[in-house]
Write a protein that binds this DNA or RNA. Sequence first.
DNA 1: CTGAAAGCGCTTACAG
DNA 2: CTGAAAGCGCTTACAG
Lengths: 329, 329
Amino acid sequence: MAQLAGVSVTTVSRVINDYPHVSKAKKDKVFWAMDKLGYVPMQAARQMRGSGSQTIGVVVPEIINPFFSYLINAIERTVDKLHYKTLIIQTFGRKQNELTALDYLKRHQVDGIILCALENDWDIIKGYQKYGQIAVCNEYVDEDTIPMVIGDQFNGLRQGTEYLISKGKTKIAYCTGRDSLLLQQRGKNFDSDRYLGFTTALQAHDLSFNPAWLFTNAHSIEDGQAILKQLSQMAQKPDAIITGSDEVATGIVSLAKSLNIQIPQDLSVLGVDDQPLAKFLSYPLTTIRQPITQMGQQVAEVLIDNIKGTTEPAQKIKLDLQIVPRESA
Amino acid sequence: MAQLAGVSVTTVSRVINDYPHVSKAKKDKVFWAMDKLGYVPMQAARQMRGSGSQTIGVVVPEIINPFFSYLINAIERTVDKLHYKTLIIQTFGRKQNELTALDYLKRHQVDGIILCALENDWDIIKGYQKYGQIAVCNEYVDEDTIPMVIGDQFNGLRQGTEYLISKGKTKIAYCTGRDSLLLQQRGKNFDSDRYLGFTTALQAHDLSFNPAWLFTNAHSIEDGQAILKQLSQMAQKPDAIITGSDEVATGIVSLAKSLNIQIPQDLSVLGVDDQPLAKFLSYPLTTIRQPITQMGQQVAEVLIDNIKGTTEPAQKIKLDLQIVPRESA
DNA sequence: CTGAAAGCGCTTACAG
DNA sequence: CTGAAAGCGCTTACAG
């Protein structure tokens, strides 16, 4: 290509990389030759020189979960505008896969990584910061050097609970995806913040939480169905349930009719996420919407800012959740 | 690393690549050193030498469509077992993005590509075959050299239509995602095969198709809603509709109640895909299920076979679709 | 069975 | 403003 353009490879490299001092004449010749040959620089060679890959890695548990596919979508559309590409990595919940993803940083396969879920302890992940930029989305990280974009779980769940109470509900059950409930100071942890939002609203109305109404490991539609079956056999039944996800809510409402439970009269069901089909379900889901598009966009912008070296203190962005009233509550 | 192991880099390379003649002693030393240093070979350097990237590109329109995210999921789990990685590329329906994806073949970024949708004319895509393996999934390609895995659209739609007829329906409307109906010899084209399956069933029962009941460009939930509105104002109304996708079906059933249309009595609605939430909708969808998991698995296996040089004639695999009877039809 | 050397396609001091 | 040369981390003839 340099030959066709009649310049040195050095000059070609310079025009490709927008190096300042190149004469217009040579620049034009290079562009002409590039066009003529359909030349595209080989990524691998650039990576090997340690130059940027113009790629950012997006690590998610799995893309069949609509929350994550929509998040990826928002991220990809944003980085695309900034002339970056995206490498999607699924962990399937395995620690090792997250580590492999972080290794891409070490090998210059990606310039930065967005973690949309955390599998490994933070102490381990931290060690990869020296190889490239890391940002976290939808998880809390209490580390000054890491940019983070999250939904405001505390206020989202508080408002959701207030909403149920305003509808006259007083016996509210609670689901979490984890295998136990975690309690920390506010602002430190995703699940803890959710639960604190829930109990804060309860306390404001002198209500208390019955531990028998706590359901752990609740992820899927099937989990939701199992939960409703348990509920239906309790002597003391709750009159509302906060499900932690639209999947679990879907499972619950799907079985209500056959168990002779009226929704929302007997049981109000509150989802989280506002997935695309939530409003078309047999009972359109009242749910707490997460600002997925904004989350994806902001985390992508912040990360690329950091890659480009805008070295201000790491940003911590908190976005509002929003109650979407429909029929299930 | 070679230094630590006390061998030449040549030997290290040979160990890593399973080259046959290396003494056990040196091999062990290399493994020991690899482990000690946490060494991982740098992809970029291997790619530059033209060695394989152990990566296959998966090109889809967009991952927020569950059909494609589930397909990717199946592909990824399969290539993972075969020690390959996956690079997901979304075209968003743009020809240029598909070409960029194919360029990865040229630059050795991927060893092969699975096209799950076709944006460009086949003549253009064909030109990339010399750079690496290409396989097609869920689209018809009439080219001996290209492996292809598809669902049997003809029989799927034929059975779906038969099902509607068996329920007493005779006035059946038809939707397509394209902007026009294409007719070709059977086995040549995805949409044509669907339509042929439909009309073949019709003819077997001496029924005919009223062209006023053809709806084009039907993709989304909103499209489905628009279609139902049109239908409701027709003098001659159909008593069933084949929607071409669960999204369109969802749009139709979502509006039925407010337009005073009884499903399935007044209008039977038949979806295609069997998306995860199809059975939880206000009217659980009767739908034609595509064998997504098998499709993904088979196309991945065939492609990797070809990459490894099992140069038999390109396989054409056709998988059965399946009617899932529920309440919408 | 093993190693020294060339080369893949780039970028970056260095020198002019 | 421009170019010759070194080097990034690998693999692959070539020679032994």
